[in-house]
């Protein structure tokens, strides 16, 4: 028994060797400035493409409301190196899209379904969470140029070439598909929901209301208002179940939903 304990403790000590083998050059940051600029550049292209398909809602007050809340949330939970941009687009379907570089779209259908500010904050936080995860960027391997001498020589020796324009066009198509046809991973959608809930909790807002919003969305989808969201997200019932599992250990949800303000600015005309 003594020896077993010894062995266990020793294996604990020995387990860490891989971290020591790594040289400083291998401890790269996940992404650097060049990667961010590439992401922003790509995100703009994609946003322009989305706006080629959907119209901006003309309700200026609503747009300002969403943008202001979004800016605040970006400060709270967003990546500081990005400028997040928000827009409500005209579409009866209930959905929201998070493009690389922080370009976030919410449909008028989604806004119309919302009952209070807490729900809007939840949805915005969910989208910001997607931008934070950089999943479109990672999936499409959007990276900044590596301008260093080594990379240049490496290209020479390795003979690698990139046809930038072709690559960009196919990347844009692929990104569009991801947002409108395939969806990012289901696991990530559930995680984004969880982060939305955490954001509401951190704000002392009614996080239960976000779960209610998902329940309402479920009903609306049944009526035919969820063409895209059905393709790109997990079934709403699964999303609700996942969140309920998370909140089992939580204290009771606060009641605050910022109703007054929502009534003033948040109605779709």
């Amino acid at each position: 028994m003594k020896w077993l304990l010894l062995l266990l403790m020793m294996s604990q000590a020995f387990a860490s060797h891989q971290q020591y083998r790594k040289r400083i050059s291998q401890m790269k940051v996940e992404y650097d400035e060049a990667d961010v600029l590439a992401e922003i550049k790509f995100g703009r292209e994609l946003a322009a493409k989305i706006l080629g398909k959907y119209q901006l809602l003309s309700d200026q007050k609503l747009q300002q409301y969403v943008s202001t809340l979004g800016a605040g949330l970006a400060q709270m939970i967003g990546r500081p190196e990005l400028d997040y941009h928000f827009a409500v687009i005209v579409d009866d379907d209930i959905n929201a899209y998070a493009g690389p570089g922080g370009y976030i779209f919410i449909t008028s259908g989604a806004i119309a379904l919302m009952k209070n500010e807490a729900q809007l904050i939840g949805v915005l936080a969910h989208e910001i969470a997607h931008v934070n995860k950089r999943s479109v960027v990672k999936k499409l391997k959007i990276r900044g140029d590596d301008d260093s001498l080594a990379a240049g020589l490496g290209v020479l020796i390795g003979g690698a070439t990139a046809s930038y324009r072709k690559a960009l066009e196919s990347a844009l198509d692929k990104a569009f598909d991801l947002l409108f046809e395939e969806g990012i991973s289901m696991k990530e959608e559930l995680l984004a929901d969880y982060l939305a809930l955490l954001t509401l909790q951190a704000q002392g807002l009614n996080w239960q209301s976000y779960i209610d919003y998902l329940a309402n969305m479920d009903k609306a989808i049944a009526k035919g208002q969820g063409e895209v969201v059905q393709k790109t997200h997990p079934p709403t019932s699964e999303r609700i179940d996942s969140l309920n599992r998370h909140v089992k250990s939580w204290d009771e949800s606060p009641k605050e939903v910022n109703q007054t303000r929502f009534k003033k600015y948040g109605k779709v005309n």
Partner: peptide, 25 residues
């Protein structure tokens, strides 16, 4: 028509100041 740059510019012009947004939130 595939990409709407004018709309993109409008969307970008709606950017709210960080401090203002945080205060509002």
């Amino acid at each position: 028509g595939e990409e709407n740059l004018a709309a993109l510019k409008i969307m970008e012009s709606w950017k709210v100041d960080d401090e203002v947004g945080l205060e509002f939130l």
